[in-house]
Computed example of a mutant assay.
Amino acid sequence: MAPRTERRSSLPLPLADQTVFSFRFTPSPRGARLARRLASCQMDAWGWHHGTPAHDSVELIAAEPAANAATHGRVPGRDAELRLSREDGGHVRVEVSDARGERLPEARDAGSEEDGGRRLLLVAALAEEWGTAPRAGAPGKTVWAVVPAGPVRQ
């Protein structure tokens, strides 16, 4: 009988000891749902459990630009990316990158008659700060937000 070899998953697993979680996803509704779910799982692995303000804020903030990447940032053959970073001082940085650098998001007032941008009001309300930047190492843009998470409560 041949020895068993360990098979590693290409899917990064949420782990408590990693300070950065990065995952590439297809810019589609299914990919956006997976990005939201993995953000939730990583927050839980870090100790900010479901129902805590930090967990729920990061989950929602990750979901909005991921949905925008699926709706507005899709380029055939190009992936989007979710990146979460635990930062000093009890903050979590959320980044979602897509391949459409010419389409920058704008937060619009709830009463605006223009389409789109209202979901970013949620990001602005939950994040300490947020913005956009050119995508590092690839064409496109990154939407980022910094969320105050505070200490982990066991």
Score class of each variant (00 low, 15 high):
Leu82Trp: 01
Trp46Ser: 09
Pro105Ala: 14
Trp48Phe: 11
His49Ala: 10
Trp46Ile: 09
Asp88Glu: 15
Glu81Gln: 14
Pro76Trp: 05
Arg100Ser: 11
Arg74Ser: 05
Arg100Pro: 03
Gly89Glu: 12
Thr52Asp: 07
Arg78Cys: 12
Glu81Thr: 11
Gly101Pro: 07
Gly47Arg: 02
Leu84His: 07
Met43Cys: 12
Asp56Ser: 10
Pro105Phe: 14
His55Met: 04
Leu60Gly: 01
Val96Lys: 11
Val58Gln: 06
Ala67Ser: 09
Val58Glu: 02
Ala63Pro: 00
Arg83Cys: 14
Gln42Arg: 08
Leu60Ile: 06
Ser97Gly: 11
Leu82Met: 02
Glu81Asp: 04
Arg100Val: 15
Ser85His: 09
Pro53Glu: 10
Val92Ser: 15
Arg83Asp: 04
Gly90Leu: 08
Leu104Cys: 13
Ala63Ser: 12
Ala69Leu: 10
Ala80Glu: 01
Val58Asn: 07
Pro53Cys: 03
Ala99Ser: 15
Gly51Met: 06
Arg78Trp: 08
Ala66Asp: 00
Ala62Pro: 03
Leu104Met: 14
Pro65Ile: 02
Val58Ala: 04
Ala66Tyr: 00
Arg93Tyr: 07
Glu102Cys: 12
Ala69Asp: 10
Pro65Phe: 01
Asp56Gln: 08
Thr52Lys: 05
His91Glu: 15
Ala54Tyr: 06
Gly101Asp: 07
Trp46Lys: 09
Val75Leu: 08
Gly77Lys: 08
Ala67Ile: 09
Ala99Tyr: 13
Ala62Cys: 02
Glu102Phe: 12
Met43Tyr: 04
Ala80His: 02
Arg86His: 04
His91Gln: 15
Pro105Val: 15
Gly73Val: 04
Leu84Gln: 05
Val96Ile: 15
His55Ser: 04
His50Pro: 00
Val58Thr: 02
Val94Lys: 02
Glu81Lys: 05
Ile61Cys: 02
Ser57Trp: 01
His72Arg: 05
Asp44Lys: 10
Asp88Ile: 10
Ala99Gly: 11
Leu60Asn: 00
His55Gly: 02
Ala45Val: 11
Asp44Glu: 15
His91Leu: 15
Gly90Tyr: 04
His49Met: 09
Gly47Leu: 03
Arg74Leu: 07
Gly89Arg: 11
